[in-house]
Amino acid sequence: MNKTTSWFNVTSLVFGFAFLYVPILILVVYSFNASKLVTVWGGFSARWYVELVHDQAIIDAAWVTIRVGILSASFATVLGTMAALVLDRYSKFHGRALFSGMVYAPLVMPEVITGLSLLLLFVAAGFDRGFWSVVIAHTTLTMCFVAVVVQSRLITFDRSLEEAALDLGCPPVKTFFLITLPLILPGVVAGWMLAFTLSLDDLVIASFNTGPGATTLPIKIYSMVRLGVTPEINAISTILISVIAVGVIVASVLSHRSEVEREKAERAVFLAG
């Protein structure tokens, strides 16, 4: 590797990450702005956070969002893991092509289409729109992401472990819970977290499928943004960003550490002969 190319690499990384992070940083900094004008620095203050705590509508929306997120992420994790197992294990069955199509399509399908079509289904079926329609909608959207994450874990899973369990007298369903699930658990957990944050994040699909009493945080934020930029939005955003960032970083550090420890142990055994 010669000097010019690595200089080029460093520059592109620095600019790339600056581009990704500076806007978020600005957003966070201005959430502590005393001034009501978002772009004029009026000194440090936490007043927007205080106001936020007293805004019942936002607290309600946050609560709805969290409940929707936990429920839909959990359903999506179960369904998505099942779908990943099917795609990984059953190479031939009637309708496999359709199945894999239904699993991958929502990944790229524009949200306006998914949102609108699901809404029309709820109306056609006479299903009242509200909390549960959003949960179903988010489950449907996020199970595909879970399926992709779990599937990538299953690809590296050694099938002979399952065969060994069967061979030792463990029936298939029990084998799944004793052997397969514990070993793909990091993928399943990552899938759950991804599903949860996607649900937390979704505006379009929730807007189409929501009903009375089921205003989620993104819907609330969106309506606030439409009315104008206020530091209060920066404050909510900062809280959301910090919660998710801390969660993701802790999870990745934990999984990284267990991997490092494992590697160390392996190396020690190798050196010991």
Partner: peptide, 13 residues
């Protein structure tokens, strides 16, 4: 019948 696998297939957990 029990089998000893080529890859050993020891349960890592």
């Amino acid at each position: 019948v029990n089998m000893m696998f080529q890859s050993y297939a020891l349960f890592p957990h």
